[in-house]
Design a protein around this nucleic acid. Sequence first.
RNA 1: GGGGGCGUAGUGUAGUGGUUUAACAUGCCGGCCUGUCAAGCCGGAGAUCGCGGGUUCGAAUCCCGUCGCUCCCGCCA
Length: 588
Amino acid sequence: MLKTHNCGGLRAAHVGQEITLAGWVNRWRDHGGLAFLDLRDRSGIVQVVSDPDAAPGAHAVARQARSEFVLQVRGVVRRRPDGLTNPDMPTGEIEVVARQVEILNPAKTPPFYVYDDSPVDEALRLKYRYLDLRRQRMQRNLILRHRVVKYIRDFLAARDFVEIETPILFKTTPEGARDYLVPSRVHPGEFYALPQSPQQLKQLLMVAGFERYFQIARCFRDEDQRGDRQPEFTQLDLEMSFVEREDVIALAEALLTGVIEDCCERELLLKPFPRLTYAEALRRFGSDRPDMRFGMELVDISDLVAESGFGIFSKTVEGGGQVRGIRAPGCGSYSRRQIDELTELAQREGAKGLAWMAVGEGGEVRSSFAKFLAGEEIAAIIERMEAEPGDLLLFVAAAAPVVNAVLNGLRLELGERLGLRDANVLACCWVVDFPLFEWNEEERRWDPSHHLFTAPMPEDLPLLDTDPGAARGQQYDFVCNGVETGGGSIRIHQREVQEKVFELIGLDAAVARERFGHMLEAFEYGTPPHGGIAPGIDRLVMFLAGEPNIREVIAFPKTQQAADLMAGAPSPVEPEQLEELHIQIVDE
RNA sequence: GGGGGCGUAGUGUAGUGGUUUAACAUGCCGGCCUGUCAAGCCGGAGAUCGCGGGUUCGAAUCCCGUCGCUCCCGCCA
């Protein structure tokens, strides 16, 4: 080893020891006589002093060192003189007096500051990712990520899970997201697909009798990017045999609670995680992934305004729609301009308009529609909304899906403005009882709302024949701070049920056999009832790190255009490579 | 596929309703300096203002296009 100690680990207890350090120059301060170097390695930073009188050779070398030079320093740990300690540094009580300094490698001036986390253009960070990763923020995040994955492995291994790898080169599945395809050299014109998740394979591992499987699995989806979506991402994929929904949820909750409490200091607001049905989540929050860090729940006033003189309200209710609202505490003084902004947001989400009512400090009402209502109707609304003086009430009248979308959008926006979406707080919940199918109007058929193999709730089995849209699936989503962070289900293990689902989604037997024949055949050889869940590791670590996007917890992420700016991927390839793969590029 | 934001010395920003040696900080280079830790002081170099075109006597600034990064909608079983 080129070093005997780590920079960040040196303390007063080391005083007097002769040690060797190796690391990068964080900052340097040359006083002409004395020179100081802050030497950094992964463990932290320690001050190195070079004194021309004590060690002229070392001093001469040290003076040449610049930011990010790689040095080896041999020296003695010394307690700093009185009054010269630095209480802001963990190593601030001591310093290392250099006896010998060697430049292991010089460094060009970095394109941005490594020694602090000051903001830098994202493209530049990604181009020089190896330098960005030297910075404290990324070191901290990736080490946190390591601890999270380590915790998961230990937790599951202790509970009898087996970690098994599944192929990256697999088979295309036209359902779901767009696949990344890999051409086959050996089979001209044929392609592998990168897995969107190991879904089928983990179920086959249950058929294979492993009973408890997990994998830290890379997944690939060729869809447009978001702050919480990358073309390749990592899931904790796990599957269990002989379990019911409660078993999977209980295990996952114990694991997730343990990870959160073990790996970060953030407040876990709700423990145990609240359980909401899909219908309840939409009713209370307008979303199937509610941000539970704050209240501001949706309130239905349809019955109060059904007979009112405000036509937009009464006609909407008469036509089968609804009128619901939210209460924005302390926003009663919002100007017309601010309310117009909220109205624009509402219209983007599909509302025709936004009805509002501000309750003044003295209880007086300022409103876009109150003049159409009777006094007792206004009073009833205020009472139902539990409005206090100074509050702003916002109402949307429309069909339920529109009301949900609009009020969800307003709730999140107001939560943001009121500072209720604090990254230091984690609020998780489970959403269960999802509808098994969604009606696809274009294709005139049912689409699976989760995936093809999700089992219906046992009591809803008859509905598959009579009212498929009302059938609920044994599905569960794990939601953290308003982001879907994991989802899973109990799977179908009975052939009749699976065939019924294929029929409902318009997958005829021949096509099903071609795409999923291996699954169907496997299921005929004694399939245990099974189910699982797949929490997103990137999203989870993002929350634990308090980061605003998952690029900050991925070592080498891609841009929104799915490019790697450091390596320059994707890139053109040699004609010979294409020829070998039987690929022709067609000009658009 | 659509909408918004950003792009000016190495870096972070100012300037942007037309005419400036394009400013400030930091970094970089040189000098001075034996207790700094965001070191200090003095000096210096460093920008055809993302790129292309247009309008104009004159464009970082206005217009059109394009590229890159980013946020959002669609999409993401």
